[in-house]
Write a protein that binds this DNA or RNA. Structure first.
Length: 260
DNA sequence: AGCACA
């Protein structure tokens, strides 16, 4: 290899430790330069990336700081502002780094207005109160019941299919993707192997920025018509009788052959 | 603010 000791490196912040580990495994040993046979090596960082959101509004570019450097330079550092690390697993006290910094009076929750009553209590990543780099706040007003296929909206007309594929094809459970051009906007369908994979991506990549799109973050919804699911006739065993579906009261129960 | 393909 050409590099000796001085190798380029980078850090990426994920919405949850689980998501970070999934990405790490997905990208591990990925060959990113076929000419030099350069292979990507991914590790969990020793410290969490501290991300500060720009103050100027929607177009502001997020800036990332090394948490350790920030701790060194921070003036009045009040640990009382830090919340317990929630679902990140019990960290050893020695290596514990404050995870959820809540700016006093300015809590920021990109998923604040998002609620899905029909969602089953599946493990959702703890929402980071500060937007990660590369994400935009995204309102997801109307959504469909969770299924294994995601609908991607808020994509500009010249959104690169290659970029979308790069974003989604590495996600756990990814099956296939279809891009649909609709005049001045683009939509995209992604099928996953199972419901949980779709839910994870729906939550983790909500509002993620697609560079080739000119509309900021993408909107992730569950598809109305999942991949490969034909509209199947539901269990209608009552022969299509209108009104009350076959309610069986104790009085009307018929014995098969009570007569001689 | 837009849901195709089987």
């Amino acid at each position: 290899m050409n590099f000796k000791g001085e190798q380029p490196m980078g850090f990426a912040l994920f919405t949850s430790a689980a998501a970070a580990m999934a990405a790490k495994d997905a990208l591990q040993n990925l060959m990113f330069d076929y000419e030099t046979n350069s292979v990507l090596r991914a590790e969990m960082a020793k410290k969490n990336l501290f991300v500060k959101r720009g103050v100027t509004g929607t177009g502001a570019v997020a800036q990332a700081f090394d948490q350790s450097k920030r701790l060194r330079t921070a003036g009045n550092y009040t640990p009382s502002h830090y919340a317990p690390p929630g679902a990140y697993g019990a960290p050893t006290p020695a290596s514990w780094v404050p995870q959820s910094y809540v700016p006093p009076g300015a809590p920021y929750d990109p998923y604040a207005s998002y609620s899905m009553p029909s969602l089953q209590p599946v493990a959702r990543p703890v929402v980071t109160p500060v937007a990660p780099a590369g994400y935009m706040p995204m309102q997801n007003i109307k959504d469909n019941p969770p299924c294994n296929t995601l609908f991607v909206g808020n994509l500009g007309e010249n959104t690169s299919e290659t970029e979308l594929r790069g974003i989604f094809s590495g996600q756990p459970g990814f099956r296939q993707m279809k891009v649909l051009r609709q005049g001045r906007s683009t939509v995209c369908f992604i099928e996953f192997a199972d419901l949980n994979s779709a839910i994870a991506v729906h939550n983790n990549l909500q509002g993620a920025i697609v560079t080739s799109s000119d509309r900021g973050g993408m909107r992730l919804q569950y598809s109305k018509n999942p991949f490969g699911r034909k509209r199947e006739s539901v269990n209608n065993q009552d022969g299509g009788a209108p009104g009350v579906p076959g309610v069986t009261t104790s009085e009307t129960t018929t014995e098969p052959s009570s007569s001689p």
